[in-house]
């Protein structure tokens, strides 16, 4: 079992002829993912990495029946691309693209939800279920099948944490990158609900960062609905207020969104909070023994 993606995942890559689209199509295939189709604004490209390329999402859906879309489309065109995906009835859209204006994302979010499409991202590394499928840009080499579910707002920090878990003998059910934007399509709560329901997930690692109140809300949800042990880390204790720390969503505004507030809320909900990212495997071990 897993969350959101599994062996039945069939991926359509939007923007497959671009540099990133091509590299990561190769990466997804190497992971064992069924990449069934791609689309491109460029005309007359028959295939990329052995994957057939279509001019529209509708054509790709008719011919290859994907159930997941992975978007590498540049920010100014991402909204239109997502509308096309939602209109074609694809239930999951993973948006890797960074710098999508939040006004566009609001339109995308409510349009997609009306059409029954879940968005993961934007500005996210994607999602991976080891041994089954990967949608996005997460590195293949760090994963191993196992019983730890990982959900995070960051990219590289997550790779480092997953790598640490794997090196310490653990493996992952699914690793979900929510992305660093202020309006995420999928939230901690969605991911936590998925892991709570997934029988193979025995422990959950949640990686947060400053900005917004998503961690505080997740803490409240954990207190009420999550019976599995949760280990967490929150990045950005040293971040000065009013400064965007790389991610559009990582900013302390009007006193809200500090690491301190998040750590406090999570601890109160019974979450084991790591002071340093490298403490996570030890805390997971403790949690699984308890």
């Amino acid at each position: 079992m897993s969350v959101f993606v599994d062996a039945s995942t069939r991926v359509l890559v939007l923007g497959i002829t671009g540099h990133q689209g091509t590299i990561h199509t190769r990466g997804m295939k190497a992971f064992g993912t069924q990449v069934v189709a791609g689309t491109s604004m460029r005309k007359g490209v028959p295939e990329v990495e052995g994957v057939p390329v279509f001019e529209s999402v509708e054509d790709a859906v008719k011919a290859t029946h994907p159930n997941t879309a992975c978007l590498f489309v540049p920010a100014p065109f991402a909204k239109d691309a997502l509308f096309e995906v939602a209109d074609a009835g694809i239930p999951l859209a993973v948006i890797i693209t960074e710098h999508i204006p939040f006004h566009d994302m609001l339109d995308m979010l409510y349009y997609a939800s009306a059409k029954g499409t879940r968005i993961l991202g934007p500005n996210c590394p994607g999602i991976a279920t080891p041994g089954a499928a990967k949608v996005g840009i997460l590195p293949n080499v760090i994963f191993k099948p196992g019983n730890v579910g990982v959900v995070s707002r960051s990219g590289t920090l997550t790779y480092e944490i997953v790598n640490n878990l794997t090196e310490n003998g653990f493996g992952e059910t699914t690793c979900i990158g929510l992305g660093g934007d202020p309006v995420p399509g999928t939230t901690f709560i969605d991911a936590l609900a998925g892991f709570q329901k997934d029988p193979e997930t025995h422990a959950i690692v949640m990686v947060g960062e400053i900005g917004g109140v998503a961690e505080e809300e997740a803490a409240e949800y954990i207190g009420k609905h999550v019976t599995k042990p949760v280990v967490s880390y929150v990045a950005g204790q040293s971040a000065p207020p009013g400064k965007r720390m790389g991610h559009a969503g990582a900013i302390i505004t009007r006193g809200k969104g500090t690491a301190e507030s998040k750590v406090q809320a999570l601890s109160k909900a019974g979450v084991r909070v790591a002071k340093f990212p490298y403490e996570i495997p030890g805390l997971v071990r403790q949690a699984l023994k308890a």
Binding site: S152, T156, L157, G180, A235, Q237, S238, M245, A259
Partner: peptide, 15 residues
């Protein structure tokens, strides 16, 4: 490389 990793590194430094 990566915003989360950069923040985490600064945190460890501060601690």
């Amino acid at each position: 490389n990566g915003a989360g990793l950069t923040m985490a590194t600064l945190d460890v430094l501060l601690e």
